[in-house]
Design a protein around this nucleic acid. Structure first.
Lengths: 151, 151
DNA sequence: CTGTAGATTGTGTATCCTTCTCAATAAAGA
DNA sequence: TCTTTATTGAGAAGGATACACAATCTACAG
Protein backbone atom coordinates (compact mmCIF):
# COMPACT_ATOMS: atom_id res chain seq x y z
CA UNK A 1 0.00 0.00 0.00
CA UNK A 2 2.90 2.35 0.44
CA UNK A 3 5.57 1.97 -2.19
CA UNK A 4 3.97 1.87 -5.57
CA UNK A 5 5.95 1.01 -8.62
CA UNK A 6 4.71 1.50 -12.14
CA UNK A 7 3.68 -2.13 -12.25
CA UNK A 8 1.97 -2.34 -8.90
CA UNK A 9 0.03 0.78 -9.79
CA UNK A 10 -0.85 -0.78 -13.10
CA UNK A 11 -2.03 -3.95 -11.42
CA UNK A 12 -4.25 -2.07 -9.05
CA UNK A 13 -5.73 0.01 -11.85
CA UNK A 14 -6.30 -2.88 -14.21
CA UNK A 15 -7.99 -4.82 -11.46
CA UNK A 16 -10.78 -2.30 -11.72
CA UNK A 17 -10.78 -2.08 -15.49
CA UNK A 18 -8.72 1.06 -15.55
CA UNK A 19 -5.48 1.85 -17.25
CA UNK A 20 -2.00 2.96 -16.46
CA UNK A 21 -1.03 6.02 -18.42
CA UNK A 22 2.22 7.93 -18.55
CA UNK A 23 0.46 10.84 -16.89
CA UNK A 24 -0.63 8.80 -13.91
CA UNK A 25 2.78 7.29 -13.57
CA UNK A 26 4.45 10.66 -13.70
CA UNK A 27 2.15 12.15 -11.13
CA UNK A 28 2.75 9.29 -8.76
CA UNK A 29 6.48 9.78 -9.16
CA UNK A 30 6.29 13.43 -8.26
CA UNK A 31 4.63 12.53 -4.99
CA UNK A 32 7.09 9.76 -4.32
CA UNK A 33 9.99 12.16 -4.77
CA UNK A 34 8.42 14.76 -2.54
CA UNK A 35 10.26 15.30 0.75
CA UNK A 36 8.30 13.90 3.66
CA UNK A 37 5.88 16.41 5.12
CA UNK A 38 5.42 18.30 1.87
CA UNK A 39 2.11 18.41 0.13
CA UNK A 40 0.94 19.78 -3.19
CA UNK A 41 -2.21 21.42 -4.42
CA UNK A 42 -3.47 20.70 -7.91
CA UNK A 43 -1.86 23.87 -9.10
CA UNK A 44 1.39 23.21 -7.25
CA UNK A 45 1.57 19.90 -9.01
CA UNK A 46 0.81 21.50 -12.34
CA UNK A 47 3.64 24.00 -11.90
CA UNK A 48 6.02 21.35 -10.65
CA UNK A 49 5.35 19.35 -13.79
CA UNK A 50 5.74 22.38 -16.04
CA UNK A 51 9.14 23.03 -14.52
CA UNK A 52 10.13 19.46 -15.20
CA UNK A 53 9.06 19.88 -18.79
CA UNK A 54 6.10 17.56 -18.34
CA UNK A 55 2.97 18.76 -20.02
CA UNK A 56 -0.06 17.35 -18.25
CA UNK A 57 -3.33 19.21 -18.40
CA UNK A 58 -5.00 20.61 -15.33
CA UNK A 59 -8.04 18.46 -16.03
CA UNK A 60 -5.98 15.34 -15.91
CA UNK A 61 -4.34 16.52 -12.74
CA UNK A 62 -7.62 17.06 -10.99
CA UNK A 63 -8.94 13.76 -12.24
CA UNK A 64 -5.84 11.89 -11.19
CA UNK A 65 -5.61 13.47 -7.76
CA UNK A 66 -9.18 12.56 -7.04
CA UNK A 67 -8.74 9.09 -8.40
CA UNK A 68 -5.65 8.38 -6.38
CA UNK A 69 -7.18 9.82 -3.25
CA UNK A 70 -10.15 7.52 -3.63
CA UNK A 71 -7.90 4.60 -4.27
CA UNK A 72 -6.05 5.40 -1.08
CA UNK A 73 -2.77 6.18 -2.80
CA UNK A 74 -2.88 9.84 -1.89
CA UNK A 75 -4.37 11.54 1.09
CA UNK A 76 -6.36 14.66 0.70
CA UNK A 77 -5.61 17.42 3.19
CA UNK A 78 -7.86 20.31 4.09
CA UNK A 79 -5.25 22.70 5.31
CA UNK A 80 -5.69 26.21 4.04
CA UNK A 81 -8.85 27.86 2.87
CA UNK A 82 -10.15 27.24 -0.56
CA UNK A 83 -8.20 24.36 -1.98
CA UNK A 84 -7.01 20.89 -1.17
CA UNK A 85 -3.53 19.56 -0.76
CA UNK A 86 -2.34 16.06 -1.46
CA UNK A 87 0.47 13.90 -0.22
CA UNK A 88 1.44 10.27 -0.47
CA UNK A 89 -0.67 8.18 1.84
CA UNK A 90 1.89 6.51 4.03
CA UNK A 91 1.00 3.27 5.74
CA UNK A 92 -0.17 3.14 9.31
CA UNK A 93 2.80 4.45 11.30
CA UNK A 94 3.30 7.49 9.07
CA UNK A 95 -0.09 9.12 9.25
CA UNK A 96 0.14 12.53 10.75
CA UNK A 97 -2.19 15.24 11.89
CA UNK A 98 -2.42 18.98 11.68
CA UNK A 99 -2.61 21.88 14.07
CA UNK A 100 -3.83 24.90 12.14
CA UNK A 101 -4.06 28.53 13.15
CA UNK A 102 -7.40 29.78 11.84
CA UNK A 103 -6.07 33.31 11.54
CA UNK A 104 -2.70 33.03 9.83
CA UNK A 105 -3.12 29.48 8.47
CA UNK A 106 0.19 28.36 9.96
CA UNK A 107 0.12 24.59 10.13
CA UNK A 108 2.10 22.27 12.33
CA UNK A 109 2.25 18.54 11.87
CA UNK A 110 2.28 16.00 14.61
CA UNK A 111 1.90 12.28 15.05
CA UNK A 112 -0.10 10.20 17.42
CA UNK A 113 -0.33 6.46 17.68
CA UNK A 114 -3.39 6.46 19.92
CA UNK A 115 -5.32 8.44 17.33
CA UNK A 116 -4.40 5.97 14.64
CA UNK A 117 -5.56 3.13 16.80
CA UNK A 118 -8.85 4.83 17.48
CA UNK A 119 -9.32 5.61 13.81
CA UNK A 120 -8.53 2.09 12.76
CA UNK A 121 -10.77 0.58 15.38
CA UNK A 122 -13.66 2.91 14.58
CA UNK A 123 -13.55 2.11 10.90
CA UNK A 124 -13.24 -1.59 11.58
CA UNK A 125 -16.14 -1.66 14.00
CA UNK A 126 -18.41 -0.19 11.33
CA UNK A 127 -17.08 -2.47 8.64
CA UNK A 128 -15.43 0.36 6.75
CA UNK A 129 -12.24 0.02 4.76
CA UNK A 130 -9.94 2.70 6.17
CA UNK A 131 -8.30 5.03 3.69
CA UNK A 132 -7.17 7.92 5.79
CA UNK A 133 -7.54 9.28 9.25
CA UNK A 134 -6.54 12.75 10.30
CA UNK A 135 -7.06 14.86 13.34
CA UNK A 136 -7.43 18.51 12.50
CA UNK A 137 -7.06 20.98 15.30
CA UNK A 138 -8.26 24.50 14.66
CA UNK A 139 -6.78 26.97 17.06
CA UNK A 140 -5.18 30.37 17.39
CA UNK A 141 -1.41 30.47 17.49
CA UNK A 142 0.49 32.44 20.14
CA UNK A 143 1.46 35.17 17.69
CA UNK A 144 -2.08 35.78 16.55
CA UNK A 145 -3.34 35.72 20.11
CA UNK A 146 -1.05 38.60 20.93
CA UNK A 147 -1.77 40.59 17.81
CA UNK A 148 -4.88 42.73 17.66
CA UNK A 149 -5.42 41.59 14.12
CA UNK A 150 -9.09 41.19 13.30
CA UNK A 151 -10.38 37.64 13.42
CA UNK B 1 -18.27 29.25 25.41
CA UNK B 2 -21.30 27.13 24.73
CA UNK B 3 -24.59 28.86 25.38
CA UNK B 4 -24.56 32.26 23.81
CA UNK B 5 -27.32 34.72 24.46
CA UNK B 6 -27.82 37.86 22.49
CA UNK B 7 -25.99 39.83 25.15
CA UNK B 8 -23.05 37.50 25.62
CA UNK B 9 -22.59 37.46 21.86
CA UNK B 10 -22.78 41.23 21.86
CA UNK B 11 -20.20 41.50 24.61
CA UNK B 12 -17.80 39.25 22.77
CA UNK B 13 -18.25 41.15 19.53
CA UNK B 14 -17.95 44.60 21.08
CA UNK B 15 -14.81 43.54 22.87
CA UNK B 16 -13.18 43.45 19.47
CA UNK B 17 -14.79 46.58 18.14
CA UNK B 18 -17.48 44.70 16.28
CA UNK B 19 -21.20 44.94 16.44
CA UNK B 20 -24.18 42.81 17.18
CA UNK B 21 -26.67 42.93 14.34
CA UNK B 22 -30.09 41.34 14.01
CA UNK B 23 -28.66 39.16 11.27
CA UNK B 24 -25.92 37.77 13.47
CA UNK B 25 -28.34 37.18 16.29
CA UNK B 26 -30.78 35.38 14.01
CA UNK B 27 -28.12 33.16 12.55
CA UNK B 28 -26.88 32.17 15.97
CA UNK B 29 -30.42 31.30 16.96
CA UNK B 30 -30.87 29.02 14.01
CA UNK B 31 -27.84 27.03 15.07
CA UNK B 32 -28.96 26.96 18.66
CA UNK B 33 -32.31 25.55 17.66
CA UNK B 34 -30.76 22.94 15.42
CA UNK B 35 -31.15 19.37 16.69
CA UNK B 36 -27.88 17.99 17.94
CA UNK B 37 -25.89 16.29 15.22
CA UNK B 38 -27.33 18.43 12.44
CA UNK B 39 -25.18 20.78 10.48
CA UNK B 40 -25.88 23.38 7.84
CA UNK B 41 -24.09 24.60 4.77
CA UNK B 42 -24.27 28.25 3.84
CA UNK B 43 -27.00 27.47 1.41
CA UNK B 44 -28.91 25.28 3.87
CA UNK B 45 -28.88 28.16 6.27
CA UNK B 46 -30.03 30.56 3.59
CA UNK B 47 -32.99 28.33 2.73
CA UNK B 48 -33.81 27.75 6.36
CA UNK B 49 -33.98 31.49 6.87
CA UNK B 50 -36.07 32.01 3.76
CA UNK B 51 -38.57 29.50 5.05
CA UNK B 52 -38.75 31.34 8.34
CA UNK B 53 -39.42 34.54 6.47
CA UNK B 54 -36.02 35.97 7.40
CA UNK B 55 -34.32 37.77 4.59
CA UNK B 56 -30.57 37.68 5.07
CA UNK B 57 -28.32 37.90 2.05
CA UNK B 58 -25.98 35.12 1.08
CA UNK B 59 -23.07 37.51 1.46
CA UNK B 60 -23.92 38.13 5.04
CA UNK B 61 -24.37 34.45 5.66
CA UNK B 62 -20.95 33.61 4.34
CA UNK B 63 -19.40 36.46 6.27
CA UNK B 64 -21.15 35.50 9.47
CA UNK B 65 -20.35 31.82 9.24
CA UNK B 66 -16.70 32.56 8.76
CA UNK B 67 -16.68 35.11 11.52
CA UNK B 68 -18.33 32.80 14.01
CA UNK B 69 -16.11 29.92 13.06
CA UNK B 70 -13.05 32.05 13.70
CA UNK B 71 -14.48 33.23 16.96
CA UNK B 72 -14.96 29.63 17.98
CA UNK B 73 -18.76 29.88 18.14
CA UNK B 74 -19.29 27.55 15.22
CA UNK B 75 -17.24 24.63 14.03
CA UNK B 76 -16.51 24.20 10.39
CA UNK B 77 -16.90 20.67 9.05
CA UNK B 78 -15.38 19.27 5.88
CA UNK B 79 -17.83 16.50 5.26
CA UNK B 80 -18.90 16.24 1.67
CA UNK B 81 -17.12 17.43 -1.41
CA UNK B 82 -17.22 21.01 -2.39
CA UNK B 83 -18.69 22.89 0.49
CA UNK B 84 -18.44 23.33 4.22
CA UNK B 85 -20.93 22.59 6.92
CA UNK B 86 -21.30 24.35 10.21
CA UNK B 87 -22.65 23.45 13.60
CA UNK B 88 -22.58 24.96 17.05
CA UNK B 89 -19.22 24.45 18.66
CA UNK B 90 -20.10 22.60 21.82
CA UNK B 91 -17.73 22.70 24.74
CA UNK B 92 -15.20 19.99 25.37
CA UNK B 93 -17.35 16.96 26.20
CA UNK B 94 -19.56 17.36 23.16
CA UNK B 95 -16.99 17.45 20.41
CA UNK B 96 -17.53 14.67 17.98
CA UNK B 97 -15.81 13.22 14.98
CA UNK B 98 -16.77 11.94 11.59
CA UNK B 99 -16.41 8.73 9.67
CA UNK B 100 -17.03 9.45 6.01
CA UNK B 101 -17.44 7.14 3.07
CA UNK B 102 -15.49 8.70 0.22
CA UNK B 103 -17.74 7.11 -2.35
CA UNK B 104 -21.29 7.74 -1.17
CA UNK B 105 -20.49 10.51 1.34
CA UNK B 106 -22.40 8.79 4.10
CA UNK B 107 -21.20 10.23 7.39
CA UNK B 108 -21.33 8.74 10.83
CA UNK B 109 -20.58 10.63 14.00
CA UNK B 110 -18.71 9.28 16.95
CA UNK B 111 -17.13 10.54 20.13
CA UNK B 112 -13.82 9.91 21.74
CA UNK B 113 -12.46 11.28 24.95
CA UNK B 114 -8.88 10.23 24.29
CA UNK B 115 -8.86 12.22 21.07
CA UNK B 116 -10.09 15.30 22.85
CA UNK B 117 -7.38 14.93 25.42
CA UNK B 118 -4.74 14.59 22.77
CA UNK B 119 -6.09 17.59 20.87
CA UNK B 120 -6.22 19.73 23.95
CA UNK B 121 -2.77 18.71 25.04
CA UNK B 122 -1.27 19.26 21.61
CA UNK B 123 -2.69 22.76 21.32
CA UNK B 124 -1.62 23.61 24.84
CA UNK B 125 1.91 22.38 24.35
CA UNK B 126 2.34 24.73 21.39
CA UNK B 127 0.69 27.62 23.19
CA UNK B 128 -2.33 27.60 20.91
CA UNK B 129 -5.82 28.54 21.97
CA UNK B 130 -7.97 25.58 21.00
CA UNK B 131 -11.08 26.29 18.99
CA UNK B 132 -11.97 22.93 17.56
CA UNK B 133 -10.57 19.49 17.21
CA UNK B 134 -11.99 16.88 14.90
CA UNK B 135 -10.90 13.52 13.70
CA UNK B 136 -11.98 12.85 10.15
CA UNK B 137 -11.83 9.30 8.93
CA UNK B 138 -12.08 8.73 5.21
CA UNK B 139 -13.02 5.21 4.38
CA UNK B 140 -15.22 3.04 2.21
CA UNK B 141 -18.47 1.84 3.71
CA UNK B 142 -19.53 -1.80 3.54
CA UNK B 143 -22.17 -1.10 0.92
CA UNK B 144 -19.77 0.64 -1.42
CA UNK B 145 -17.17 -2.06 -0.90
CA UNK B 146 -19.62 -4.63 -2.21
CA UNK B 147 -20.85 -2.54 -5.10
CA UNK B 148 -18.83 -2.49 -8.27
CA UNK B 149 -19.41 1.22 -8.58
CA UNK B 150 -16.39 3.00 -9.97
CA UNK B 151 -14.17 4.65 -7.42
C1' DC C 1 1.97 -8.70 -33.63
C1' DT C 2 -2.45 -6.55 -34.81
C1' DG C 3 -7.07 -4.97 -34.23
C1' DT C 4 -10.69 -3.34 -31.35
C1' DA C 5 -13.28 -1.61 -27.48
C1' DG C 6 -13.44 1.66 -24.53
C1' DA C 7 -10.75 4.25 -20.94
C1' DT C 8 -8.17 8.53 -20.87
C1' DT C 9 -6.48 12.86 -22.40
C1' DG C 10 -6.49 17.91 -23.62
C1' DT C 11 -8.96 22.00 -24.71
C1' DG C 12 -12.27 24.93 -23.85
C1' DT C 13 -16.32 25.84 -21.37
C1' DA C 14 -19.36 25.56 -17.51
C1' DT C 15 -20.47 25.35 -12.71
C1' DC C 16 -20.30 25.75 -8.03
C1' DC C 17 -18.95 27.95 -3.86
C1' DT C 18 -17.17 31.85 -1.93
C1' DT C 19 -15.36 36.52 -1.77
C1' DC C 20 -15.30 41.24 -3.19
C1' DT C 21 -17.04 46.06 -4.31
C1' DC C 22 -19.48 49.86 -3.02
C1' DA C 23 -23.26 52.71 -1.80
C1' DA C 24 -26.75 52.69 1.77
C1' DT C 25 -27.73 51.58 6.44
C1' DA C 26 -27.46 51.06 11.27
C1' DA C 27 -24.90 49.91 15.84
C1' DA C 28 -21.92 51.76 19.51
C1' DG C 29 -20.33 55.17 22.32
C1' DA C 30 -19.78 60.10 23.33
C1' DT D 1 -28.94 62.92 19.64
C1' DC D 2 -24.84 62.86 16.82
C1' DT D 3 -20.78 60.90 14.76
C1' DT D 4 -17.95 57.31 13.46
C1' DT D 5 -17.43 53.36 11.13
C1' DA D 6 -18.80 48.41 11.05
C1' DT D 7 -22.19 45.96 8.52
C1' DT D 8 -25.45 44.94 5.04
C1' DG D 9 -27.38 43.73 0.35
C1' DA D 10 -26.98 43.25 -4.57
C1' DG D 11 -24.48 42.09 -8.11
C1' DA D 12 -20.22 41.18 -10.14
C1' DA D 13 -15.79 38.79 -9.78
C1' DG D 14 -12.83 35.16 -8.52
C1' DG D 15 -10.94 30.61 -7.88
C1' DA D 16 -11.10 25.85 -7.73
C1' DT D 17 -12.97 22.04 -9.79
C1' DA D 18 -15.93 19.46 -13.01
C1' DC D 19 -17.71 18.64 -17.58
C1' DA D 20 -18.19 17.68 -22.88
C1' DC D 21 -16.35 15.80 -26.64
C1' DA D 22 -13.28 14.61 -30.29
C1' DA D 23 -8.73 12.60 -30.64
C1' DT D 24 -5.67 9.36 -28.67
C1' DC D 25 -3.81 5.51 -26.42
C1' DT D 26 -4.01 1.29 -23.21
C1' DA D 27 -5.29 -3.39 -22.41
C1' DC D 28 -6.44 -7.50 -24.04
C1' DA D 29 -8.16 -11.00 -27.37
C1' DG D 30 -7.09 -13.28 -31.29
Amino acid sequence: MSLYTASSLKAELNERGWRLTPQRETILQVFQNLPKGNHLSAEDLYNELQTDGERISLSTIYRTLKLMARMGILRELELAEGHKHYELNQPYPYYHHHLICVRCNKTTEFKSDPILKIGTKTAQKEGYHLLDCQLTIHAICPTCQRSLMPV
